[in-house]
Amino acid sequence: MSSVVGEITPQPAATEIATGARGYWSTVARRLSRDPVSVICAVILAAILASAIFAPWLGLADPYQGSMIRRLRVVGTPHYPLGTDELGRDMLARLIYGGRLSLLTGILPVCLAFITGTSLGIVAGYAGGKINTAVMRTIDVFYAFPSVLLAIAISGALGAGIVNSIVSLTIVFIPQITRVAESVTIAVRNRDFIDAARASGAGPLTIMRVHVLGNVLGPIFVYATGLVSVSMILASGLSFLGLGTRPPEPEWGLMLNTLRTAIYANPVVAALPGAMIFAVSICFNLLSDGLRSAMNIRD
C-alpha cells in the first residue's frame, strides 16, 4: 500500500525560511506608526501629558493668583495669551495645571478597572459554570444603571473629593471591562491550544496566565483606551456637580462650571476648558480606533 506514500523521500521542509520573526506587539506598534491619524493623536496626547507633568518648570504664571482688576481678559491679551478667568487668574496656567487632575481622573480609574475587570472576566470566562454565573450576574446589577447615574450615586454616597471620584469611576468601569474580558476569554477558551495545554497537565491558573492572558489583552486594551475619554467626561461632570475636585484647584470640568457665568461676557475663554476635554477625548478615541485596526492582524 506504500504506493501512496512510500516512495516520497524526506524533503527539505525545514529550509523554507519565512522572513523576519517578529513578536505580536512589535508588529502592532509598526502598523500603528504607519497610521497618520493615530500618530497625530499620540503626539497631541503626549504633549498635553508632558506639559501637565512638567507644569511647574514651564515658567507659567501662578494658577491660583487672581486679581479683581484683570478679570475675564480676552484671548490674546499681552502677558495672558489665553486670557483670564472670572477671578483674574491666568487661563493658560490653569489649563495646563488643570490637565494634571483631569488626566489623572481620566486615566487612573480606567487603569484600575482594567486590572480588576480583566482578572474577573478571565476567571469567569475560563471557569464557566457557577463561577461565571456568580460573577456575571453581580456585574449585571451594576450594569443595569446608566454609568453617569451610577458615578453620581457612588460619589454622592462616598462624599466629595478627588479620591472618592476616582473610586466611583473605577466601580463604574469594572463591569464594562469584565464583560468584554469574559466574552473574549470564552472565544479563546474554545480553541484547541487550550485543550493542548490542559493535555500537557497544566493547571487552570497556569493556563490563564500563559495561554489566555496574552490572547485577550489586545481587545480589552482597545476597549479600555476608548473608556479614557468617557472617564474624563464623567470626572469633569462630577467636578461640575461639586462631587469631584473643589475650588480653587484647577480642573477642566470644575473650570467649565465656574466659567459658565461668564459665557456671555467672554464666550471664548469660557469654552476653553471644554475644548481641552474635547481634544483629549477625541484623541483617545481616534487612537483606540487606530489601535483596533492595527491589531486586526490575521494571525
Partner: peptide, 8 residues
C-alpha cells in the same frame, strides 16, 4: 488552532 498564536 492548536498552537497559541502569541507564543514562539
Amino acid at each position: 488552532a492548536s498552537l497559541n498564536p502569541r507564543l514562539t
